Amino acid sequence: MGKERLVAFEDAVLAIIMTILVLELKKPETMNWSGLWALRANFFAYALSFFWIGLMWASHHNNWHLVKKIDRQTVGLTLLLLFFSSLFPYTTSLVAEHFNNATAQVLYGSIIIIVSLMNVLLSLNLRKLNPEANFGLLYATPTVIVALDLLLKLVGLLISVTIFPAAMVLSILLASLLLIFFPKSA
């Protein structure tokens, strides 16, 4: 299989996931500002998931042009990444409906962490196959930033389980901002 076919498949699946996210948004019980305000957790969960998936897509888009070779492991890792990513609409809806519930937050955060780790494994696989691309743990993102990203998510998970359920989404938001605004390595 050529990389173009795999990239096109990934693009299509991620686009479908992002579309399903918006279809899961709840409608207000009364169509007024207070009815919309009552759904703020839904909108926040949707926006966080949409932009997190968009960030992942942009990272792949910005780095896969350097890939010359893929193998069966690349395909397998991509399928696993997409499988766990396909759970975003479900876990997002759980967080949206049960924002202050530790179980919903931990499930959502666990999927985010698994997808993050799958991205790291995929990047390491591509680095092995394409040494000239100079990929690190997560493409061109410095290793310290990847480690901080994962640490923030794990701390959010721990706090979410113990004392403050919404810590999970807040840690994901902070980790996402870190990945967006930190300059990439040269």
Rank of each mutant, 00 (worst) to 15 (best):
E4V: 14
E4W: 13
E4Q: 14
R5W: 08
V7Y: 12
A8Q: 09
A8D: 07
F9R: 02
F9C: 05
E10Y: 10
D11F: 01
D11A: 02
I16W: 04
I16K: 02
T19A: 12
L25N: 00
K26Q: 00
K27F: 00
M31V: 12
N32P: 06
N32A: 08
S34A: 14
G35W: 14
A38L: 09
R40S: 15
A41L: 11
Y46K: 06
A47F: 14
S49G: 00
F51P: 03
F51Y: 07
W52L: 11
I53K: 10
I53W: 01
G54V: 03
G54E: 04
M56C: 05
W57P: 03
W57F: 10
N62Q: 10
W64G: 03
H65S: 13
V67D: 10
D71H: 05
D71I: 03
D71Q: 01
R72K: 12
T74P: 03
T74N: 06
L80P: 07
F83I: 08
S85F: 13
Y90M: 09
Y90N: 11
L94V: 09
A96T: 05
F99R: 03
A102V: 14
A102E: 13
T103A: 15
T103Y: 15
T103E: 15
A104M: 12
V106W: 11
V106I: 15
V106H: 12
V106A: 15
L107I: 15
Y108K: 06
G109Q: 04
S110I: 09
I111F: 13
I114H: 09
V115I: 09
M118P: 05
L121K: 09
L121F: 15
L121E: 11
L122W: 12
L122D: 10
S123K: 00
N125V: 13
N125F: 06
L126K: 01
E132M: 01
G136H: 09
Y139E: 10
P142I: 04
T143H: 13
T143A: 14
V144E: 12
I145R: 01
V146K: 01
D149M: 04
L152Y: 02
L152H: 02
K153Y: 11
K153G: 02
K153W: 07
L154W: 05
G156P: 07
L158D: 05
I159N: 06
S160P: 13
V161P: 04
F164V: 00
F164L: 07
F164D: 02
A166V: 14
A167C: 08
M168P: 05
V169T: 13
V169Y: 10
L170I: 15
I172Y: 04
A175L: 00
A175P: 01
L178W: 00
I180R: 00
P183E: 11
K184P: 02
S185M: 09
A186W: 04
